[in-house]
Design a protein around this nucleic acid. Structure first.
Length: 568
RNA sequence: GAUUCCGUAGCUCAGCUGGUAGAGCAAUACACUUUUAAUGUAUGGGCCCUGGGUUCGAAUCCCAGCGGGAUCACCA
C-alpha cells in the first residue's frame, strides 16, 4: 500500500543520491549556505567581476564537454551560471565536474554557487562558478516548460488539476503564478497600511463559534469534546467586531477566513477571506468615501495604477464612484418603480419579468431577485448601490428618510458584489425584532435566515455608538486586480476532492484478514502464517494468498528451502 | 445538482471507420571550452484513469464508476 512504483527517472535520481553519498557528499546538508546575492539584482545592476554567492534550483543544463552552462532559479528569478572543468577541479581529480556536476546533478536540484559575475560573448549576464555545493537533491522530475527565442512557451505545465493539487510545482515552473500571489500579499499589506494610518486596530476574533452569526449561510459544524457542545466554523465575524465597538474601540478590522458549507465553483471556495472594518461615529455615507479612497489606494499599490483589466472589461478604481439607489437602479433597467409597492404587486412584477419566484419570498427578497436578475450585471465600473430593502438587511440601520429601507450599500464591480456596508443597527430593541423576523422567515421556508445571538443583543443593550461597517470580499477583489476569472487561481491551495491515488483492490474477507495480519508482522515464514488461519480450507487459503500476491501486496520467496512471505 | 468536454511516457500532446503504442521536450550513453528551446549520434521508458460489456481481437465502440475543466442552477 505504502509502496509506490517508481518511474525510471525517479529510480535514476535515487541512484544518483546514493552515488553522491558514496562520494562523501551529503545531498541534504544541514549547514547554512551564505547567500549574498539574488539573480534578479545581479541582472538589474550588472557589476563585472563582482564575487557573489547564490543558491537555487538548477533548471537547465547545457553541457559542452569541458565547459557547461546551467540556469539557477532563486526566489527572485533565473540567472545563467558557467562551469569550467579545470576551474571546478584544478587538480588531477576531475570527479567534481565529470561526475557530480555532469551526471549526479539533476534538473530541479538545489545547489549553491560561488563565483564572479560576467557577461558571455552573447551578452548574457552570468556567474562564472569557482565552486559549488549540493544543497538539496530533487527526487522527482519537474515539468519543464521552455521558452523559445520568440517568447513562445513550449510544454507549459497547464493541467489545472495537477497545478492546483501540486501548487508547489506550479509555483516553481510557472513564474506568472507567483506574481499573482505576490500581488495578493501586496493587496493585504496595502489595506493594512491604509487602516493603520487611519488609526484603526487589527484584531482577531473567534473562528470557532457557538452561534454562527453575522451572515446567512450554511456553516461547517464540529464538536468540542471537553465541553461536549457543537461548535461552528465562522461564516462571518461581524457580530464579534461590533462587540469590540461596544467595548470602546474606535475602529477595528480583521482579515477573516470564513467558512461556508455550500457549493464550489469558479467564484466560490468553502473557505474564503473577507475583510471587515467597523468605525464608530460614522455612517454609510462616510463609509462610501472611505471605501473609494481605500480601493484607489489598493489598486495603486498592487498594480501601480488605478486601471485594471478583467477579461473583456477595463475598470478604473479611481475615486469617486457613481452612487445609485436600488430603487433608481431598478427603474433604470426595468422601468418599474418599487416604491410603495405591496408584496403582491412586487410578486406580479417579478413574475412578469420572467424571474422565478415563489411564495416563500417576502418583499425584500423579491426586490433583491429583481435587482439580481435585471440590474446587477450592468455595473462594470465600480458603483455603489444604496438603500436596500429592510427585510434583506437584518443588521443594518433603518434609513433615516424611509422606514422600508436601510442605510446599506454594496459596491458592484464587473456585475458582482465586492463590498457591503451599513450604518450599523445599534438599537437593541429593533435588532431583536429583526432577528425575530428572520426566525419567521426561516419558518416560512427561507433556509438562509440568520440565527439569533442573545449575547450579541445583550452587548447592544449596553449601548453601541453609531457605527459604520464595511466588508470586502478579498478573493473577489484580487481576482479583479490580477485578471483571474477563477478563484482557484488566486488561492494557494483551493479545495479539491481528496486524491484516491492507491488503486482500489477489492479484497474479500479472507484476503483482508491475511493482509491485516501481514501488515502487523511485516514478514513471516509461510507455514507459520498458514497456522494462524487454520480454519481456512487449503483451497480458500491458496486462492487468497494468490490474489494478494497477484495484486502485488504480498510476495512469497524461497530461501534455503524455507518459504517466506513478506509485505511488498 | 444538470449539461458537455477531457483523462495515453516525467511534461505537452498525436493515435482515422477496432488489428499488439507514437512525436517533441525531459531521461540514459558518447562527443563537444562562451552556449541559450545548445548541437550531433545512439538507447531506454507505458496498469493507454478504473471496472464491466461487445468482438477472434479494444487506447479506439457501449455501459458504469472515479477525477478534472467549462457552462448553467443553487449559493454571497
Amino acid at each position: 500500500m505504502s509502496h509506490i512504483e517508481l518511474s525510471e527517472q525517479e529510480i535514476l535520481r535515487r541512484e544518483s543520491l546514493q552515488k553522491l553519498r558514496d562520494l562523501g557528499i551529503d545531498p541534504y546538508p544541514a549547514a547554512l549556505y551564505p547567500v549574498d546575492a539574488y539573480a534578479h539584482n545581479l541582472k538589474q545592476d550588472f557589476e563585472d567581476g563582482k564575487e557573489v554567492c547564490l543558491a537555487g534550483r538548477m533548471m537547465s543544463q547545457r553541457i559542452m564537454g569541458k565547459a557547461s552552462f546551467a540556469e539557477l532559479q532563486d526566489a527572485s528569478g533565473r540567472i545563467q551560471v558557467y562551469f569550467n572543468r579545470d576551474e571546478i577541479c584544478p587538480d588531477e581529480d576531475k570527479t567534481l565536474y565529470n561526475e557530480v556536476f555532469k551526471k549526479l546533478l539533476d534538473l530541479g536540484d538545489f545547489i549553491g554557487v560561488k563565483g564572479r559575475v560576467f557577461k558571455t560573448q552573447v551578452g548574457e549576464i552570468s556567474v562564472h562558478v569557482h565552486s559549488f555545493t549540493v544543497l538539496s537533491k530533487s527526487l522527482r522530475p519537474l515539468p519543464l516548460p521552455k521558452t523559445d527565442t520568440d517568447g513562445n512557451v513550449h510544454d507549459a505545465f497547464t493541467d489545472p488539476e495537477l497545478r492546483y493539487r501540486q501548487r508547489y510545482v506550479d509555483l516553481v515552473v510557472n513564474p506568472h503564478v507567483k506574481e499573482v500571489f505576490v500581488k495578493r500579499t501586496k493587496l493585504f499589506n496595502a489595506m493594512r497600511h491604509f487602516f493603520n494610518e487611519a488609526g484603526y486596530m487589527e484584531v482577531e476574533t473567534p473562528i470557532l463559534q457557538a452561534i454562527p452569526g453575522g451572515a446567512s449561510a450554511r456553516p461547517f459544524i464540529t464538536h468540542h469534546n471537553a465541553l461536549d457542545i457543537p461548535l461552528y466554523m465562522r461564516i462571518a465575524n461581524e457580530l464579534y467586531l461590533k462587540r469590540l465597538i461596544v467595548g470602546g474601540f474606535d475602529g477595528v478590522y480583521e482579515f477573516s477566513k470564513n467558512f461556508r458549507n455550500e457549493g464550489m465553483d469558479r467564484t466560490h471556495n468553502p473557505e474564503f477571506t473577507a475583510m471587515e472594518i467597523y468605525v464608530s461615529y460614522k455612517d454609510y455615507n462616510w463609509m462610501m468615501d472611505f471605501t473609494e479612497r481605500l480601493l484607489e489606494h489598493c489598486a495603486m499599490s498592487v498594480n501601480g495604477k488605478t486601471e485594471a483589466t478583467f477579461g473583456e472589461h477595463h475598470i478604473d478604481f479611481r475615486a469617486p464612484y457613481k452612487r445609485v439607489t436600488m430603487r433608481q437602479s431598478i427603474i433604470d433597467f426595468t422601468g418599474f418603480d418599487i416604491d410603495g409597492k405591496s408584496e403582491e404587486e412586487l410578486f406580479a412584477a417579478a413574475k412578469g419579468m420572467g424571474i422565478a419566484v415563489d411564495e416563500t419570498m417576502g418583499k425584500g427578497k423579491l426586490i433583491d431577485e429583481i435587482f439580481g436578475a435585471k440590474c446587477e450585471g450592468n455595473y462594470i465600473q465600480p458603483t455603489f448601490i444604496t438603500d436596500y430593502p429592510k427585510e434583506m438587511s437584518p443588521l443594518c440601520k433603518v434609513h433615516r428618510d424611509n422606514p422600508e429601507l436601510t442605510e446599506r450599500f454594496e459596491l458592484m464591480v464587473c456585475g458582482k458584489e465586492v463590498a457591503n456596508a451599513y450604518s450599523e443597527l445599534n438599537d437593541p430593541i429593533d435588532q431583536r425584532e429583526r432577528f425575530e423576523e428572520q426566525l419567521r422567515l426561516q419558518e416560512k421556508g427561507d433556509d438562509e435566515a440568520m440565527f439569533i445571538d442573545q449575547d450579541f443583543l445583550r452587548a447592544l443593550e449596553y449601548g453601541m455608538p453609531p457605527t459604520s461597517g464595511l466588508g470586502i470580499g478579498m478573493d473577489r477583489l484580487i481576482m479583479y486586480l490580477t485578471n483571474n476569472a477563477s478563484i482557484q487561481e488566486i488561492l494557494f491551495f483551493p479545495q479539491m476532492r481528496p486524491e484516491t491515488k492507491s488503486v482500489k483492490i477489492e479484497l474479500n474477507e479472507n484476503e483482508q484478514a491475511i493482509f491485516a495480519a501481514m501488515q502487523k508482522q511485516g514478514e513471516s515464514v509461510l507455514p507459520d502464517l498458514r497456522a494462524q488461519f487454520a480454519e481456512m480450507s487449503n483451497k480458500v487459503w491458496d486462492n487468497s494468498v494468490k490474489t494478494l500476491t497477484k495484486n502485488n501486496l504480498l510476495k512469497v520467496s524461497k530461501e534455503n528451502e524455507t518459504l517466506y512471505i513478506r509485505l511488498v
